[in-house]
Design a protein around this nucleic acid. Sequence first.
DNA 1: CTTGACCTTAGAGTATAGTCCAAGGTTTAT
DNA 2: ATAAACCTTGGACTATACTCTAAGGTCAAG
Lengths: 133, 133
Amino acid sequence: MRIGELAENCSVTTDTIRFYEKKGLIKSLRNPDNGYRTYSSSDIKKMMFIKHCKQAGFSLEDIRDLLLIWENKMDASCEDVKTLAEERLHKVEVMLSSLQTVHGILHTLVQSCCGGKESAEHCSILSAIEKGE
Amino acid sequence: MRIGELAENCSVTTDTIRFYEKKGLIKSLRNPDNGYRTYSSSDIKKMMFIKHCKQAGFSLEDIRDLLLIWENKMDASCEDVKTLAEERLHKVEVMLSSLQTVHGILHTLVQSCCGGKESAEHCSILSAIEKGE
DNA sequence: CTTGACCTTAGAGTATAGTCCAAGGTTTAT
DNA sequence: ATAAACCTTGGACTATACTCTAAGGTCAAG
Ligand SMILES: [Zn+2]
Ligand SMILES: [Zn+2]
Ligand SMILES: [Zn+2]
Ligand SMILES: [Zn+2]
């Protein structure tokens, strides 16, 4: 399989596959005649694993580590995997928390404003921002 | 006031002030003798306005527009302000939603794994990812 | 009169995850 | 034989909000 066919099979672009290779997520054999990258069906499985990891919110760096474990399950422990997942979960929770704070502020601001067509001189959003909420 | 003093007064770096100037958020007068940026106390108010906007989750581009309105309140309407805030609120809600999805997936994954020190061959996180949740 | 603290500029680097381009070589189909 | 479709590389560009560097000019104190 050449890169275009792998890309087709996995619904990604060839650019993405080359990018993942550069980042150390996938390797490729080369056709010695023309230098073309060559893949097997196990690379489809690998690309699908990567896509599932992304759906779960893992970064490419996380995924590189998860792939190493996945391809060498006997040399890794559940602890290794769980630690990785917990660290990502924690980062997501931190982001979620600050996003929720921001959401609350914006929601309050939006609700306070009449949204009318008259001058913004009396706008409660502007005065709330001015005062720092 | 020179840039260092404004930075000090607002707890930002001089780099940040120059960056905001480049992005069109603040302007500065120049001392004709030496080319140094010169600021007045209204620039402190402006910087504080910017900081409050950031706390509310607005982007620098949003803030540039908000500042234009704030400095010309009579030429703008509540509608203008509210529309800006609603658009940002919507973007935050979209981000929040995808982050919550990811949080749910990660939380389930973490809970499913024993986290033990034995081989990862039976790891439920890996098999869940493999299957695509 | 020199040292240190301040100011100037343009430009590069940080992080993330790609995406696009140019300039060239290869393969496939007509 | 030639055009379309594919492949190669390195490097630039996207978005966001800074942060840092280099190389130089200015200013106040001792
Ligand atoms: Zn109003
Ligand atoms: Zn209003
Ligand atoms: Zn286990
Ligand atoms: Zn496990």
